[in-house]
Design a protein around this nucleic acid. Sequence first.
DNA 1: ATTAGCACTCTCACCCTAAGAGTGCCAACG
DNA 2: CGTTGGCACTCTTAGGGTGAGAGTGCTAAT
Lengths: 368, 368
Amino acid sequence: MVGEQSSHSDTTASARSGLDLTERQRTVLRAVVEDYVLSAVPVGSRALVDRYRLLVSSATVRSAMAELEALGLLSHPHTSAGRVPSDLGYRVYVESLMREASLDRSDQLMIRHQFSQVQLTSNEWLRLAASILAGSTRSAAVVTPAKARRARFGHLQLVELGDQTRLAVLVLADGNVVQRRLDRAVLERAMAGEPLGQAHLDAAAATINADFAGLTGPQIRRRAAKLTGLAAHAAEVVASLVEDADTVAVEEVFTDGIGNVLEQPEFAEGAKLRGVLEVLQRSDFLEQLVPVLARRGGVTVIIGHENANDAMHEVSLVFAPYGAPGGALGLLGVLGPTRMPYPRAIPTVRYLATLMNELITSHHGGDA
Amino acid sequence: MVGEQSSHSDTTASARSGLDLTERQRTVLRAVVEDYVLSAVPVGSRALVDRYRLLVSSATVRSAMAELEALGLLSHPHTSAGRVPSDLGYRVYVESLMREASLDRSDQLMIRHQFSQVQLTSNEWLRLAASILAGSTRSAAVVTPAKARRARFGHLQLVELGDQTRLAVLVLADGNVVQRRLDRAVLERAMAGEPLGQAHLDAAAATINADFAGLTGPQIRRRAAKLTGLAAHAAEVVASLVEDADTVAVEEVFTDGIGNVLEQPEFAEGAKLRGVLEVLQRSDFLEQLVPVLARRGGVTVIIGHENANDAMHEVSLVFAPYGAPGGALGLLGVLGPTRMPYPRAIPTVRYLATLMNELITSHHGGDA
DNA sequence: ATTAGCACTCTCACCCTAAGAGTGCCAACG
DNA sequence: CGTTGGCACTCTTAGGGTGAGAGTGCTAAT
């Protein structure tokens, strides 16, 4: 479920969960967050009373606000501005104040329909998922391909390409396809004149396919020692491809809707987003996120400074893992300013994660 | 070579080529462009004389500037600001004033080295190319995969994935790999209980591989009629995959360095980039660019309003096609503000295009 | 043709002020 | 005692005015 990430709490757990707030404080905090998310303008006591038909005076709201500020849930840009939720304030809101705007049936159907329109290729799915996420939350969306924690060999194909090159196409056990061009020079050296026609390639691939299904990189490497000729060389390549797939947890990232974020007033000066984009490109950020999300399961919300990376201190992430249980694992979610429409983003991310789960398990049938 | 794109010229061709400019006008225009590209600040007559050691007075420069403005090559933000190059001014600069800063040997070697570090997978190449372009021009880079104008079948592999799904992995004649999951329901209906073990899959693939190499989508569809059972179904899928590859000219776009552009003062308000990002995502923009670039060959520079798309009126593109001659074709280049360091960008794009050409032809051996 | 000089224009940074929003506190009220 | 109206106070923001500076265009002299 929804939950906090860590760790840096200098405030009591009970404050964070919002359990010891009075009913009034809860109402006020909720109103402040919701108003601020909509307007992006610090919200004052008077405006709150007016807009939310609170049945108390602005003075009362003021005192509640002061209490909330003392608790670290609200903050003050300057003396005479309204209040703004702090990261912790958003946290409490997400954790115990928010009423999720569940996706209505028609939205769900529309999304499902879009997926049914598309050819059954995983990359298309990912692109589409990112596009839907971005469009329906007006934030930036990020989707990574699902891949197994431990890469295992599935099936090899060696193809003659033109007359100069050979291409190794490898299907991993988790359904991902990786390829590598075999360098002609290396190949010739290794083969010492042995013919490399399609028939020979097929034979070598068949040898490997028969023997190596389900093995990991090191296991393949061990058995490859027993082979000779083209098959040995191919096995070497296979092993290295499988190992590569193992070490790189997130290799490709599909993003969409960065423009949405640029439109938000907090990123009006575009340079602010620069750091975020760089971090996203440098894939180790998402890589580190994988185990965290996987462990927690469901939708995880990471708000502002809860983010480990400095560059991400002004954005929030709403992410979920997806994939076959115990098998392939991918990430998907949205990124926006901390002033994010959580009640919309969270169910959308959740729905898309379950949808991708379905697609993967039904079309792929899990994984060894 | 470098050249203009079109077409909208309400000024004479000779003015555009800058041929009828006096030597002084040429010097001044060059200095204005180069100064403005560096400083992003409108440049005045006095500053020009000082910084570029022109051996004339500022008054002389002023009159030259006035002439250039009359020709539409410079413009005036307001009465008392310096001059700024117009799109046309940049055009003339690029066309006949610029001295290209050719990539020095060490840069070339460094780039080459980076490519040699990377595994021989085309996607990695593309990502790397984008990253190098972005880094070395401080602009945004865009790279699209090379694919044949006319998709032809190369090699098919059918793989059993888990026990529920079958995966078709198709190597096109141009070396690209596409895949499609075969929907279990459809498969079962089509096969009516025919077994779908790996051996059967291999047999079906072998049939198709033996017969269909080098064929286009429609050709495959025609021959597929003679097949039955699994092979017929597979041929159907192959045909549709090949046709898909035919219709979608640009399917995936690798970008990098968007942050670089956000840093430029002209895009300080990030929202300005929004439209550009959207156009880039909507792939038909690049798609339309493909034939234009291919016809012209070499590096094409498109400056500001020369751009067909309204959203791109404030950016320049420096792009080149790459690929095997007459075969696979891809695009690569950079996108930045019109105030772009053309003398740096153009040779870099050119070098990367030739490099990609080399990689493709040497490792892949051309294409049918 | 080039140049020095000069009047003119426009922006930009600065300061000042007034208006407005919002707070915090306090005393009064039910 | 929680709630409320009132009020003084603070701080931002927008607007207007000003002076400096940059840059131009023109003209007359070389």
